[in-house]
Design a protein around this nucleic acid. Structure first.
Lengths: 198, 198
DNA sequence: GAATAATAGAGACTGCAGTCTGTAACTATT
DNA sequence: AATAGTTACAGACTGCAGTCTCTATTATTC
């Protein structure tokens, strides 16, 4: 149960790397599975043995996003700051990262695929680190009474997630021609103003 | 410039009606263009003469939504009320209509395909009645000083649209298992609170 | 009204994601 | 070590959206 498996993983890795490079170069829709397969000297059989769809290769890249949050953003959230300040910082760093490192085409592809009926979406996975990060922050915010007391932590998280989705959706729809970072700043300022206890 | 054109329009109508009925019956993805074409005794040539894609036929149905806004919601917006009250009412009636009459699966399909089309998406059509409705309301709101004076009407519309997209996206993602109407109420309450001049 | 242009439509064809069947190389079992 | 089971992979094949070319009929121009 080893040598064969390892060769398999090597093939998978090779496909991921090649595919992601090609997608980045020319866009998801302009890269065919046949091309990926040819460039990696593998086959359709190999490809679909490791991935259920062309989209699924993207999920690999997408998981980097949450990992980045955990590794690089959360440690920067200085606990001297108020929860609202920390949320603002988190959202700002998050959107900057997505805009600069992930790009609208990858985001678009993920948002499209998550809606497609076939497989159950990663966005709804309750174990996604993102949800945990936000929930902990919001919980602290409700305890601190930073938020109006009619909102529970869970409700605040839901609101923020909805807003995030909307911004990222529209940014993808506009093919990056609106500024994710600017739009995010405006929307979350309003939302956090609306949540803040007076 | 007449008889031929009329026959063309009749064909187009026949295709729309048949297609929408089939989509409703078995879902967008389970209906093929070949089937539509066969059932209407037309051809691929006819179909793609009238529509640029299969999705475009589907959008016809979605356009009803905007028509509904114009015909049934806008007239209810009593101008005695403040702009914020009118916006709240508009959003409430809108989401009720989408939840009850359009349904999450149609919404999901639209949201998915708006991201995927090569052609420019209906959502970005600046002539969509929705944008005009919202803009006029928000413009009045800024003139009235109902909103904090740092926001232009255009910015307020953008915020509302982002929020709407996020809510509808998540509702579709959850396959209607969250209440569109409830989530909408919570989110827009916060946003309008955040926008309101003190 | 003859000649020319325009276009609704027919249907064969292409491109590509995803499936299906087969196989060779490996692993597990006895 | 012989046999049976497993799996990474190959590549032919299918299904379907969308394109291309061609035609027949209607509109326009002189």
């Amino acid at each position: 149960m080893n040598e064969r498996h390892q060769r398999g993983q090597a093939t998978k890795r090779k496909i991921i790397e090649t595919a992601i490079a090609l997608f980045h170069e020319r866009g998801f829709n302009n890269v065919t599975v046949d091309e990926i397969v040819q460039k990696t000297n593998t086959s359709k059989g190999a490809f679909y043995n490791h991935f259920r769809s062309k989209h699924e290769v993207f999920v690999e890249q997408f998981k980097e996003i949450d990992q980045f949050y955990v590794d690089h953003i959360v440690p920067q959230l200085d606990s001297d700051k108020t929860v609202i300040e920390r949320l603002t910082l988190f959202l700002d760093l998050q959107m900057n990262y997505i805009q600069d490192e992930i790009g609208w085409d990858v985001t678009r592809t993920i948002y499209e695929h998550e809606l497609s009926t076939e497989h159950s979406p990663y966005f709804l996975d309750p174990d996604r680190p993102l949800y945990d990060i936000l929930f902990k922050l919001c919980e602290e915010g409700t305890l601190n009474k930073e938020f109006k007391n009619c909102y529970t932590a869970g409700e605040v998280v839901s609101l923020l997630i909805h807003a995030m989705r909307g911004i990222l959706y529209d940014w993808s729809l506009h093919r990056g021609k609106i500024s994710l970072v600017d739009e995010q700043k405006k929307l979350f300022k309003v939302i956090l103003d609306g949540l803040r206890a007076n």
